[in-house]
Every structure is written in structure tokens, then in C-alpha cells.
């Protein structure tokens, strides 16, 4: 109801020096994080990455994002963009949970999966 059209576009004035300095600091934090992990974790961690299939009852429905049966997974094309429904697997304590998350179709994550899928289909 309360729609306002603001005429002036916001001009982002970013000081290139500030930007460069921030980029340096960000890289430093990244590097320092990686280095500290390398030192810290001597032994390789055990793997605990099996997807708990029991979380997906009727896994057929959820097998691929191309399925259009369930409402969640329909492609959302309202405003030009289109999202794909994914599930995020998280651990709450020792319990595994999945939660819905919409990821834009043009994100590299979705794109690569699509390519893989296409390749698989061709095979």
C-alpha cells in the first residue's frame, strides 16, 4: 500500500583505498583462519557425512529439484528471478535436521548441479 518511488538513485561512493584496505584485512583473516586450522587439526577428522535418508520420507518426491510435484519445490518465477527449493542439513546437538531453503537458480551451486545432471542424462 505504502509504495514510494524515490527518484534519486543511491550513489555508492566507496573510497578505493578503503576498499583495498578492507580486502587486505579480509584476506588476512581468511588466511589466518586456514593456517590456524592446519596447525590445530593434526589428525584428520572422522567422517560423519551420510545423508540420513529417514529425514526424507518418500525420498522420491525430494530426489531432484526438477520435480514439480510438491508445492515447495516449484520454481518461483514471480519477479523475474527463479528459486529452487533445497534442504539444508544441520546438526542440533547430535540430532540431524533439515530445513527448507530457496536458492536462486543462477547461483553457482545450482548451476553446477544442473550441469552435472545434464551430463548424467547424456551418459
Amino acid at each position: 500500500e505504502d509504495q514510494v518511488k524515490i527518484k534519486q538513485k543511491k550513489v555508492m561512493e566507496i573510497d578505493p583505498e578503503e576498499e583495498a584496505e578492507f580486502e587486505r584485512e579480509l584476506r588476512a583473516v581468511m588466511q589466518e583462519s586456514i593456517d590456524s586450522r592446519k596447525l590445530e587439526v593434526r589428525s584428520r577428522p572422522a567422517l560423519n557425512m551420510v545423508i540420513p535418508m529417514n529425514l526424507f520420507e518418500g525420498s522420491k518426491e525430494h530426489s531432484r529439484m526438477t520435480d514439480v510435484e510438491s508445492g515447495d519445490e516449484t520454481v518461483d518465477e514471480h519477479d523475474g528471478g527463479s528459486d529452487v527449493a533445497y534442504r539444508v542439513l544441520v546438526k542440533k546437538g547430535n540430532k540431524q535436521q533439515t530445513k527448507q531453503l530457496r536458492i536462486p537458480r543462477d547461483s553457482s551451486l545450482v548451476q553446477s548441479t544442473k550441469q552435472k545432471e545434464a551430463a548424467e542424462l547424456e551418459e
Binding site: S33, I34, R37, K38, V41, R44, P45, M49, I51, F56, S59, H62, S63, R64, M65, E73, V84, A85, Y86, R87, V88, L89, V90, T98, L101, I103, L109, S112, T113, K116
Partner: peptide, 18 residues
């Protein structure tokens, strides 16, 4: 994030070491 090859599932994974 990494995604599953077969399901529409993603998880967070650390780049070092996992």
C-alpha cells in the same frame, strides 16, 4: 556450502580440513 549429488540437499562444510 556443498550440495549432494543425488538429493536437493546442501550442508555447510569447512574448507580446512573437512
Amino acid at each position: 556450502f556443498i550440495s549432494s549429488k543425488t538429493e536437493s540437499v546442501v550442508v555447510l562444510l569447512c574448507r580446512e580440513p573437512c
